[in-house]
Lab assay of single mutants.
Amino acid sequence: SKWSPSQVVDWMKGLDDCLQQYIKNFEREKISGDQLLRITHQELEDLGVSRIGHQELILEAVD
């Protein structure tokens, strides 16, 4: 995926409302499409996504 960080942010805006709070962290870390495809629970935790349910929603959406 050749998504830029801004495309990742646009994609996140289409996800569940409960995930919108994390967008600024993804933006700050400039998460690209390639990074998103390989993202782990630990990396999500580092991005402030501490709730497992929220991590799962992001990982499922990526899949």
Score class of each variant (00 low, 15 high):
residue 5 P to V: 13
residue 6 S to P: 07
residue 7 Q to D: 12
residue 8 V to W: 00
residue 8 V to E: 03
residue 9 V to Y: 03
residue 10 D to G: 11
residue 10 D to M: 10
residue 10 D to W: 06
residue 12 M to Y: 07
residue 12 M to G: 03
residue 12 M to E: 03
residue 13 K to E: 07
residue 13 K to Y: 08
residue 13 K to W: 07
residue 14 G to L: 05
residue 14 G to V: 01
residue 15 L to C: 05
residue 15 L to H: 02
residue 15 L to A: 04
residue 16 D to P: 13
residue 16 D to N: 07
residue 16 D to T: 04
residue 17 D to S: 13
residue 17 D to C: 13
residue 17 D to W: 05
residue 17 D to Q: 12
residue 18 C to A: 10
residue 18 C to Q: 11
residue 18 C to S: 14
residue 19 L to D: 04
residue 19 L to A: 04
residue 21 Q to P: 15
residue 21 Q to T: 11
residue 21 Q to F: 05
residue 22 Y to T: 04
residue 23 I to C: 14
residue 25 N to W: 06
residue 26 F to L: 03
residue 26 F to T: 02
residue 27 E to D: 08
residue 28 R to P: 01
residue 29 E to M: 13
residue 29 E to W: 09
residue 30 K to T: 06
residue 30 K to H: 13
residue 30 K to V: 05
residue 31 I to D: 00
residue 32 S to M: 06
residue 32 S to V: 06
residue 33 G to A: 03
residue 33 G to K: 06
residue 33 G to P: 01
residue 33 G to Y: 08
residue 34 D to A: 15
residue 34 D to T: 11
residue 34 D to R: 12
residue 34 D to S: 13
residue 35 Q to I: 11
residue 35 Q to F: 07
residue 36 L to C: 00
residue 36 L to N: 01
residue 36 L to S: 01
residue 37 L to H: 10
residue 38 R to C: 09
residue 38 R to I: 05
residue 38 R to A: 14
residue 38 R to L: 07
residue 39 I to M: 14
residue 39 I to N: 04
residue 40 T to K: 09
residue 40 T to V: 01
residue 40 T to E: 05
residue 40 T to Y: 00
residue 40 T to R: 08
residue 40 T to M: 01
residue 41 H to P: 14
residue 43 E to V: 08
residue 43 E to Y: 06
residue 44 L to Q: 00
residue 44 L to F: 03
residue 44 L to A: 02
residue 45 E to A: 14
residue 45 E to I: 12
residue 46 D to T: 13
residue 46 D to G: 12
residue 46 D to N: 14
residue 46 D to V: 11
residue 46 D to C: 09
residue 46 D to F: 11
residue 47 L to N: 02
residue 47 L to G: 01
residue 49 V to T: 01
residue 50 S to P: 07
residue 50 S to C: 12
residue 53 G to H: 14
residue 53 G to V: 12
residue 53 G to Y: 10
residue 53 G to L: 12
residue 54 H to A: 03
residue 55 Q to P: 04
residue 56 E to A: 10
residue 57 L to F: 05
residue 57 L to W: 00
residue 58 I to R: 02
residue 59 L to S: 04
residue 59 L to Y: 04
residue 60 E to I: 05
residue 60 E to M: 09
residue 62 V to W: 01
residue 62 V to S: 03
residue 63 D to I: 08
residue 63 D to Q: 13
residue 63 D to P: 02
residue 63 D to C: 14
residue 63 D to G: 15
